[in-house]
Design a protein around this nucleic acid. Structure first.
Lengths: 225, 225
DNA sequence: CGCTAGGATGAATGTCTGTTCACTAACAGC
DNA sequence: GCTGTTAGTGAACAGACATTCATCCTAGCG
């Protein structure tokens, strides 16, 4: 988010102030996120955030306009992580469309796992957000789901995947990724992150792969632990 | 929920009181649900519920212990609907395991569609519920997902479905059903209830059906509108 | 008609929470 | 050291909210 290289060097004072501001922002964002994860997003009060971050209430208002701004920033933070990590993972996966798809799904799951409070994403309540904030989130979510849609489209064009409804499949995959932190609602049995990703990938590919290409991806389809 | 036939006839006064209590409960529950659907579950205040129901605030406390009790009752109400409607739909679908599975999924979607409000609430409010309330919900949810698991198991035993992880597949299907009210976050394009159910069913069956049985269920697999 | 029990009311109460602001602390440049 | 600017504090305020309770109906009964 460093807003481009400045034409002239910043004087040290200005630089110091900027890094301080950034440190504070991150500190507050992280405190809010931690609180959301621990006690549920309901009970994130400004006092609680301040205490968690070890600062005073008033300070939050120096860095964020208010509670809405703070919550919006937390969400945008997560969505930014998608925008950075998912394309990188796809790139690193090579040229094969199916491998790229699997890598993309895994990347989504990983981001969500490292931001478990992303349960908020499912819980976007229009009431607690401003209209612009809502629009921002909506736009960012569509943006961050674009890589997934592209990869699926690639697979269909290459004749490896059956010609499914791209939007719907992308929607479903995102849903399964976001549902990883909720699993303990239905499973008593322990299901680790690795198993979860592998099995969901196998299920998804079973639905998407052209029948005559299934043999080539047997290693992805056989996920039974 | 009529608690069994009484050994002796109730005197009219007692009966009238009971129906009044029941009417009031339903009236308040319905008011709360309607409010949640209209303005989001955030803004369900006791005053708002009272106004919506056309009664005074104090009256709510005659029928429910407090706000938590009321919300819990709303959730339990929805879960009860699952417990009633899903098994009925499966029963009505006949003997074929795949048809039964499709009917079960559709029934889940239908219940969620007619109770859009509380679907999300369940997981969202989890931190603000009492421990017993949480346990109740958790138990009810596992219970209401049991028919789905049974149907999937039937299909596997009959050799029509591939031997997948039953719990995981049931989890995924429930998720897709619950995600129906959230769809407009990702789709600009309008996707009606019928199309949603048909396409999701087709995707799921593509993942689950044994390859050599796919021909028999072509009508369910071809869902392109 | 009067009496009573339980249904129903809604102003009052206390708590919680977002926000403000008068104030202090640290620190830069002179 | 003085001074002005910025970071930081936290008590105080205001609004919203769940909950209570003294009070008012009203239906049933003798």
């Amino acid at each position: 988010m460093s807003s481009g290289a400045p034409a002239t060097d910043l004087d040290p004072g200005e630089a110091a102030r900027q890094t301080l501001a950034q440190r504070r922002s991150e500190q507050l964002l992280s405190a809010a996120a931690q609180l959301m994860e621990r006690d549920g997003s309901q009970s994130v009060s400004m006092h609680a955030v301040a205490e968690e971050a070890g600062v005073s209430v008033g300070l939050i208002y120096r860095y964020f306009g208010g509670k809405h701004d703070l919550l919006l920033a937390v969400i945008v933070n997560v969505l930014d992580a998608f925008g950075r990590q998912v394309p990188a993972a796809i790139q690193a996966a090579g040229a094969d469309p199916v491998t790229r798809l699997a890598a993309a799904f895994r990347a989504y799951c990983e981001v969500i796992d490292s931001h478990r409070h992303a349960a908020v994403l499912t819980h976007r309540e229009s009431k607690s957000l401003s209209d612009e904030g809502l629009e921002t989130i909506k736009r960012l979510e569509v943006e961050t789901s674009e890589p997934l849609r592209t990869v699926i489209r690639e697979g269909i064009d290459a004749g490896v995947l059956t010609p499914v409804d791209v939007d719907l499949v992308a929607y479903d995959l995102l849903l399964l990724a976001q549902a990883w932190p909720l699993k303990h609602w239905y499973f008593e049995r322990t299901l680790g992150f690795e198993d979860y990703v592998r099995r969901q990938t196998a299920l998804a590919l079973a639905a998407l792969l052209q029948p005559h290409r299934r043999r080539s991806y047997r290693h992805l389809l056989e996920a039974a632990g």
